[in-house]
Design a protein around this nucleic acid. Structure first.
Lengths: 137, 137
DNA sequence: CTGTCTGCAAAGTCTTTGCAGCACA
DNA sequence: TGTGCTGCAAAGACTTTGCAGACAG
């Protein structure tokens, strides 16, 4: 496990440090996007001490290198980060904060949009908000 | 003009003040979403002095009442606000920051999603990122 | 008149930065 | 060994809050 994370970092030309392995591991293990402080808390709970500034620096680093995505949700005043597996989107419960992953419904929309606008499209993000079955009640 | 803005506020049960009329007017007149400080600057330029805290308070107020939308764009660490006309989305140039409005490509996606997930969908947001024709060069 | 709003100042939260010592390659 | 990373502390950007005086209805 530590092995494969080291390889991943190496593949992305990121120098391997204990802190980076720990931070990335948290992101990879998570089923949903995490904020910097959530990562910080998880590491604390595992008795691993890192500075928040280190976490921020490495999240930027990972993001620039294309290892993770940076997300911002309406009403949350902080960024969330997520390891990039496949392309997908999120459905957020506005009551309990639960985050669900969704398939992309815009598979071939981008090319037609590029044609219409003259833009070179690099990316799109979809956020869907609602109430989960529990909170609906 | 000032007339119709007052009526709009009244319709939304918002007490009419000079500051609110001015802030809302800026949002209505703008063709793209604005941040709190952009609104502040525009008002300054028109020789109208309002505190930033007042702007923030009223943006929250307008948003709660459903008069405006709150938006956050990847890589921008501040919220943007936009008067609600019709339902649409945004295409953002990652180089010059230009913002374009787009029709919604997900007209009937929400109902099928609700069926699949059990969620009660309230809203969705799409952001598309790319390079505008000028910046592409 | 009465409850609400604004100006003002201060604090709060999230994030970034500078520097010195430490660690990876 | 040398460059880049981390800890630490401080600053920065954006946003929120508390209070007293001002204003809308």
């Amino acid at each position: 496990m530590g092995e494969s994370i080291s390889k991943l970092l190496a593949n992305y030309d990121i120098r391997i440090t204990e802190q980076r392995k720990k931070i990335l591991k948290v992101l990879i293990s998570s089923s949903k996007p995490l904020s910097a402080s959530e990562i910080y808390n998880q590491l604390q709970q595992n008795n691993y001490q890192v500075r928040l500034s280190t976490i921020y620096r490495n999240l930027s680093n990972f993001h620039e290198k294309g290892l993770i995505k940076e997300l911002n949700f309406a009403g949350k005043n902080q960024n969330y980060y997520e390891f990039i597996n496949d392309h997908h989107h999120h459905l957020l419960c506005t009551s309990c904060g639960e985050i669900l992953c969704l398939d992309c419904p815009l598979q071939d929309y981008e090319s037609s949009l590029a044609r219409e606008t003259g833009y070179e499209i690099s990316e799109h993000k979809i956020k869907i908000y609602g109430l989960c079955p529990q909170c609906k009640k």
